[in-house]
């Protein structure tokens, strides 16, 4: 798998599993889970520094930006203005132009507001950002995002944190065939088989957070996800057999008594 690199906007990534950093018990667990997952892209949120309690550690003390690609996101932004503002702050706080752009529609579903997403993406691309948009499993919206200059798209498998797995595999498959850029399935994965399935469908990578952080044993699940993504990728490249309704014997008839 060493030569099977994912390339987005000229950047090479070793891992096809990308992970979030939320919901862990503490930074040590976050660090260990990321390590176990083998991910080299780690998404982070941008928030106010706690100025009254400075005893709290900084996440970047545990996740070395030299070792991992830090992918800031605009999680929690419900308007174009907020998403653009947080993107600019993320760039100012970090070292790169990468942004995982989220413009959310409502709190109950956390589905993307795709109209707002396209609008925000246009503004940010003009400012030189490398925009990786969190979008719906809608092939037409994905194509529009690519047309305006997104070097990858990140469609959801199911609502964020729901663990429902891939709810619309056919849409996702059409989406993957509709765009020429890498597709990173983002959100909704519940367990290893969901991740493997996404990769078997032809996803270029999978991004998850809750499925690992919320598992009974996050470190074990992180490792399971690593192998699931590998297995799914290998199976996709190997090319599966067609589905048939009836049996096809795998042992020869010849030589039978």
């Amino acid at each position: 798998m060493a030569d099977d690199r994912l390339v987005i906007a000229g950047r090479e990534f070793k891992s096809r599993l990308w992970v979030g950093t939320g919901k862990y018990k503490d930074f040590v667990e976050t660090q260990k889970a990321i390590e176990a997952s083998g991910a080299d892209v780690v998404t982070v949120a941008v928030r106010r520094v706690n100025i009254t309690d400075r005893s709290k550690d900084n996440l970047l003390d545990y996740i070395d930006p030299k070792k991992y690609t830090i992918l800031p996101n605009t999680a929690g932004c419900y308007t174009v203005e907020d998403a653009v503002r947080y993107s600019r702050l993320a760039r100012a706080a970090g070292v790169s132009d990468l942004i995982k752009l989220e413009v959310l529609g409502d709190e109950k579903t956390l589905f993307p507001d795709t109209a707002g997403l396209i609008e925000a993406a246009k503004i940010l691309i003009k400012e030189g950002f490398i925009v990786l948009p969190y979008t719906n499993d809608d092939p037409i919206v994905a194509k529009k995002l690519v047309d305006i200059g997104c070097p990858a798209v990140m469609p959801l498998a199911a609502p964020i944190g729901s663990g429902l797995g891939i709810r619309n595999p056919y849409n996702l498959k059409i989406l993957m065939e509709s765009v020429t850029v890498p597709v990173i399935v983002d959100a909704g994965v519940g367990t290893a088989s969901d991740a493997a399935l996404a990769m078997e469908y032809g996803a270029d990578a999978v991004l998850m957070n809750t499925a690992i952080a919320g598992a009974q044993n996050p470190l074990a699940m992180a490792e399971a996800m690593k192998y699931a993504v590998w297995a799914g990728r290998l199976a996709y490249k190997a090319g599966r057999i067609p589905r048939k309704l009836y049996a096809t014997a795998s042992s020869p008839i010849e030589g039978m008594l």
Partner: peptide, 12 residues
Amino acid sequence: VEILSFIGGGSF
């Protein structure tokens, strides 16, 4: 003045 930094989170 707003002072912000990266925290754990994302694709919750």
